[in-house]
Amino acid sequence: MTVSLKLLSKDEKHILRNLYSLYLHDLSEFTDGLNISTSGSFEFDSFELIWERDGVTPYFLKKNQVIVGFLLLLERPFLNNDYDFSINDIFMLKKFRRKGIAISLLEELFKQKKGRYFVVELAENKPAVLFWRKIYRELDIVFEEEKKIVDNEECLVQSFQI
């Protein structure tokens, strides 16, 4: 199995938009703040920011050259000086979950991008909370966690050093 992170080009943003709708659909189970649009999809209202701001980097997650998900990495100057990176969003198509792909991809990301990270999960999103705890355990990452209200939602915020 070959897994890789691939930077998106602007001409691939329509693919990311489709994947983002699936991601937001999955998240809608855990929050009342996400609803389907009149066009029949879930839309990320700040989607164009990805292409307009420095410090917002989208990656495709690939297995054997096939897109299986995406990762949205925030970095400076988008973040304050307390952190170097934030994994803002990570999404894997359901049929590729629980196969070790995400761990391999995150391990690759952490080899490329060393620094202070933070991750935010909706507290109600138990699959995401369990996912990140498994990542920390399997990659032997020591993390700090606190509960915070983010965008009127109870969240868990984890920070760690790579």
Rank of each mutant, 00 (worst) to 15 (best):
L61S: 06
L61C: 07
K62T: 04
K62Q: 13
K62L: 12
K63S: 11
N64P: 01
Q65F: 01
I67N: 10
I67E: 11
I67H: 12
G69S: 03
G69D: 01
G69P: 04
L71F: 02
L72C: 14
L74P: 07
E75D: 12
R76G: 09
R76L: 04
R76H: 10
R76W: 00
F78T: 07
F78C: 11
F78Y: 12
L79N: 08
L79I: 08
N81K: 08
N81F: 08
D82N: 15
D82Y: 15
D82A: 15
Y83T: 06
D84V: 13
D84H: 15
F85E: 01
S86K: 03
N88H: 14
N88S: 14
D89I: 08
I90E: 01
I90H: 04
I90T: 03
F91V: 01
M92A: 03
L93S: 10
K95W: 01
F96L: 00
F96P: 03
F96T: 06
F96Q: 07
R97G: 01
R97P: 02
R97I: 00
R98E: 00
K99F: 03
G100I: 07
G100W: 09
I101V: 12
A102D: 05
A102N: 09
I103E: 12
S104G: 14
L105D: 03
L106E: 05
L106T: 10
E108F: 04
L109S: 01
F110I: 12
F110S: 09
F110R: 07
K111D: 00
K111V: 00
Q112L: 10
Q112W: 04
Q112Y: 09
Q112H: 08
K113L: 05
K113S: 10
K114A: 11
G115Q: 11
G115T: 10
Y117R: 09
V119F: 04
V119E: 00
V120I: 10
V120C: 02
E121K: 14
E121N: 15
E121H: 15
E121Y: 09
L122Y: 02
L122C: 01
A123W: 00
E124K: 12
K126C: 03
P127I: 03
A128W: 01
A128R: 10
A128E: 05
A128H: 07
V129M: 10
V129H: 10
L130K: 14
F131I: 11
F131V: 11
W132H: 12
R133E: 08
R133F: 02
R133I: 00
R133K: 14
R133P: 00
K134S: 14
I135S: 14
I135A: 14
I135Y: 10
Y136N: 12
E138L: 15
L139S: 09
D140L: 12
I141L: 07
V142M: 12
E144A: 06
E146F: 05
K147L: 11
K148W: 01
K148P: 02
K148T: 02
V150G: 05
D151T: 06
D151F: 09
N152P: 05
E153K: 15
E154M: 14
C155F: 09
L156H: 09
L156K: 03
Q158D: 07
Q158P: 00
Q158A: 13
